[in-house]
């Protein structure tokens, strides 16, 4: 299948996004290669088809936001909000990602081969995020469901006000946020962790090296014993 080559020095982001949206709702599996991204914002946002999009270079804010079904690869670094509110499909970043990567995302898989900075997976609602490096502070803040796998270290206040997302960390955790606790890691957890690492193509991490963190469930449910506090 021929690859569509798009040079962002010649085609506007609005035009390339419109061309991708023309295929929304179809089963089109065409390949798209986007060059000269040069930190531009909102590239490949709002796709709803099983396309394959390769972006050669660094991108700005909100790349691949709201993605459905597509596989988007950024060969470079991302600005804030990569794969924000992703629904399904896969987004891979070969470099590092800025703030709130995968924020509010409902599904799919986000892979960051470098580091993610603060608020990675904030309010995630079902997405799986695998970070080969480390994540910054306030990651998985108010995370509701899905899995966040961190092969490196986690910054301060990890999993603050966590709901039912599961967090796996291989390295050090600077500090846990309110209501986030370490939980025992069982075989079923190691199995899902191995599956996620395999899907992300990470071969040099052993699932046995990770710790598991989750919600103590003391914050988000109404508790009659806390009545005086209301």
């Amino acid at each position: 299948m021929a690859t569509h080559n798009i040079d962002l020095e010649k085609t506007s982001v609005r035009d390339i996004n419109q061309a991708l949206h023309e295929l929304n709702g179809t089963e089109d599996r065409s390949e798209w290669r986007i060059t000269n991204s040069k930190g531009r914002h909102a590239i490949a946002v709002g796709i709803d088809a099983p396309l394959s999009v390769n972006i050669e270079g660094h991108v700005g804010y909100y790349c691949a936001g709201m993605n459905k079904h597509a596989t988007v690869t950024v060969n470079g670094n991302c600005g804030p909000g990569v794969a924000e509110n992703m629904m399904s499909g896969m987004v891979r970043v070969t470099g590092s990602a800025s703030q709130y990567a995968g924020a509010t995302a409902h599904g799919g898989l986000l892979i960051i081969e470098g580091d993610a900075s603060s608020r990675c997976g904030i309010s995630m609602k079902g997405v799986d995020i695998v970070v080969n490096g480390s994540v910054g502070h306030m990651s998985a803040f108010m995370a509701q469901s899905g899995r966040l796998v961190i092969c490196g270290d986690a910054g301060d206040a990890l999993g603050d006000s966590l709901y039912e997302a599961r967090i796996y960390v291989r390295g050090k955790v600077v500090g846990l946020g309110a209501d986030c606790i370490e939980k025992p890691i069982e075989d079923k957890h190691r199995a899902e962790l191995k599956q996620l690492l395999d899907k992300a193509g990470i071969t040099d991490c052993d699932a046995a090296e990770f710790r598991r963190y989750g919600s103590a469930r003391k914050l988000y449910n109404f508790n009659i014993d806390n009545m005086d506090a209301y």
């Binding site: 040069k38 930190g39 531009r40 914002h41 660094h58 700005g60 804010y61 670094n77 600005g79 804030p80 800025s98 703030q99 900075s117 603060s118 910054g136 502070h137």
Partner: peptide, 27 residues
Amino acid sequence: PIACKPAVMAETDEWVAMASEYRAIAV
């Protein structure tokens, strides 16, 4: 310490640059 306001830095043998967004460095 909260670091909501963006910043990106880059370095080559010729220069060091900082900017609110990478697109200012891309030039």
